[in-house]
Computed example of a mutant assay.
Amino acid sequence: MNKLLLLLLVSCAACTSQAQGPVRAQVKGETSISTAPATTLADIRRQIGTPTCSDNAQCRTLPVGAMACGGPQEYLPYSTQKSDANALRALSERSYAETKAALTASGMVSTCMLKADPGAVCVAGTCQLGTGSPAN
C-alpha cells in the first residue's frame, strides 16, 4: 500500500513539474533515464535561437517531448524567418520518440490531460507563445 501511495505521489509530482525531461522516482540500484531527450531539446533550442519576427505570420509553435498518455510535453515558439521548419519538425519527432521511449521504459503515468497548442504571436519583434488558438 505504501509503494502504491508513493507511486501515486511521484506520478502527480511529475505531471505538475516544469521539468524539461521525464521525471521518475529512482529505485535503489537502478540507473536514471537516458539524457537523450534533454540533448534533443538542447538541439531544438539551438535551432530556434531567438525567434525574431516582424509579423504574426512568421510565428509558429513546435510540439516538444511527450506525455505518458500521448500529446506533447510542451510547445516552443519559433520563427519561420529564422528557423528551418522541416529541420525543427524532424527534431520534434525525435524528441517525441525519445521521450515516449523513456516514459515507457520507466513505467511513468500521467493524468492524461492533453496540452492545447497555444499558438504563437509576434510581440516586440520576438515570437512568443499565445494564449489560445494556434497561429500555425
Rank of each mutant, 00 (worst) to 15 (best):
P51A: 08
T52A: 10
C53W: 12
C53T: 09
S54R: 15
S54L: 13
S54V: 08
D55I: 10
N56G: 07
N56M: 09
N56I: 13
A57P: 01
A57E: 09
A57L: 12
A57N: 07
Q58Y: 09
C59F: 03
R60M: 10
R60T: 08
R60V: 12
T61W: 01
L62D: 08
P63G: 02
V64C: 05
V64N: 01
V64R: 01
V64E: 06
G65F: 12
G65R: 01
G65M: 06
G65Q: 08
A66K: 00
A66H: 02
M67E: 15
A68Q: 11
A68N: 03
A68E: 04
A68S: 06
G70L: 11
G71M: 01
G71R: 00
P72I: 09
P72D: 15
Q73A: 12
E74C: 05
E74T: 13
E74K: 00
E74S: 11
Y75P: 07
Y75H: 04
Y75R: 03
L76I: 08
P77F: 06
P77K: 13
Y78C: 10
Y78F: 15
Y78K: 12
S79A: 07
S79R: 09
S79M: 11
T80D: 15
T80P: 00
T80W: 02
Q81F: 10
Q81K: 15
Q81Y: 05
S83C: 10
S83L: 08
D84Q: 06
D84L: 06
D84R: 00
D84W: 12
D84E: 09
A85Q: 04
A85G: 00
A85M: 02
N86S: 14
N86L: 14
N86R: 11
N86M: 13
A87W: 11
A87S: 08
L88R: 00
L88G: 00
L88I: 01
L88V: 01
R89L: 14
R89Q: 15
R89F: 14
A90D: 01
A90Q: 07
S92Y: 06
S92M: 06
S92I: 11
S92R: 06
S92N: 01
E93S: 10
E93W: 09
S95A: 09
S95F: 09
S95N: 05
S95E: 10
S95Q: 12
Y96E: 02
Y96G: 01
A97V: 12
E98M: 10
E98N: 11
E98I: 12
E98T: 06
